[in-house]
Simulated assay, not measured.
Amino acid sequence: MSGQTLTDRIAAAQYTLTGSEVCRAVCKATTHEQTGPKKKHLEYLIQATQETTVNVPQMADTLMERAGNASWVVVFKALITTHHIMVNGNERFLQFLASRNTLFNLSNFLDKTGSHGYDMSTFIRRYSRYLNEKAFAYRQMSFDFGRVKKGADGVMRTMTVEKLLKGMPTLQSQIDALLDFEIHPQDLNNGVINACFLLLFKDLIKLYACYNDGIINLLEKFFQMKRSQCKDGLEIYKRFLTRMTRVSEFFKIAEQVGIDKNDIPELTQAPESLLESLETHLNTLEGKKPEDK
């Protein structure tokens, strides 16, 4: 399917008549063409979020309206465009999405126009859940895990124990929602889903860096924590170990579909003795003898 449909042209023309350039750009980014949203339209929308005169709620509402379309192509592109702006636009766009009670309600979306529509509908349902979780995480934390400073003096490494024990499950939920996309190389067979996968891959790199920072902070503080905190901390660490396998699998798919190996982080497995040390410490705090474990 190449070129814009008549419906696409009419939709864009309607917004031209009402004088809304932003809404017109949203329509142009979410046409029926089976390619990712065009770079020029995404850049226009990202720049628009920096302008104080631009109506961000109207931009978001137009994207939601496009996500209500019957075509999997239009809906998928509406989600991709929203994701792009969440990541690269002014933070007030993400703040607005996080303030809404509901974001994308696509859990029952199904395009029955062909086998391709059926296949892509599955990924649309999963992708919309991830974007909802991304907005929810912002609401919970008042910051975006993807945007915060990483490393030794980064947000997750310098967090207090209380904030860390609250923030890590939120981060884990966002990572879970991303990994639940469950893509395989053969599924990446058109420009739309490929554009989505690249955004998810870039998000996962940032989320993993935050996750790693949080775990380092947790381990550094573990032996000074109260018993109840150690219990929560140990559960967080155990969940981290199981998620590392799934993160590694996602990165392997990225490599198989041609993403440069240098852009993919190397995951190092923690020694089993570390988990044993944490469990032994918690058992000591709970008054259990080693043989009771």
Results as ranks from 00 to 15, higher is better:
153 D>M: 10
172 Q>A: 11
244 M>D: 05
65 E>Q: 12
166 K>I: 04
170 T>Y: 03
235 E>M: 07
76 F>N: 01
146 G>A: 12
254 A>T: 08
36 G>Y: 00
213 D>C: 01
168 M>A: 04
50 Q>C: 04
144 D>S: 15
115 S>Y: 08
280 T>Y: 02
203 D>Y: 10
246 R>G: 01
126 R>C: 08
139 R>N: 15
215 I>K: 02
84 H>G: 01
63 L>H: 08
66 R>E: 05
239 R>P: 01
277 S>N: 10
112 K>S: 11
200 L>S: 13
148 V>L: 09
170 T>V: 15
76 F>C: 06
42 L>Y: 05
253 I>R: 02
169 P>V: 07
128 S>E: 06
84 H>W: 09
79 L>K: 07
1 M>R: 15
266 E>Y: 01
212 N>E: 15
291 E>A: 08
284 T>V: 04
85 I>N: 10
205 I>S: 05
99 S>P: 08
135 A>D: 02
64 M>C: 08
144 D>W: 00
151 G>W: 05
118 Y>E: 14
117 G>N: 12
38 K>S: 02
148 V>P: 07
284 T>S: 00
54 V>I: 09
283 N>A: 12
135 A>H: 09
149 K>N: 11
192 V>T: 12
260 D>N: 15
161 V>M: 03
39 K>H: 15
284 T>D: 03
132 N>C: 13
129 R>M: 06
203 D>N: 14
260 D>P: 01
151 G>N: 03
238 K>L: 13
13 A>R: 14
287 G>H: 13
275 L>W: 01
153 D>C: 01
256 Q>T: 14
12 A>Q: 04
125 R>D: 09
269 Q>A: 11
20 S>M: 06
184 H>T: 13
148 V>Q: 05
88 N>Q: 15
154 G>K: 07
252 K>E: 15
179 L>G: 03
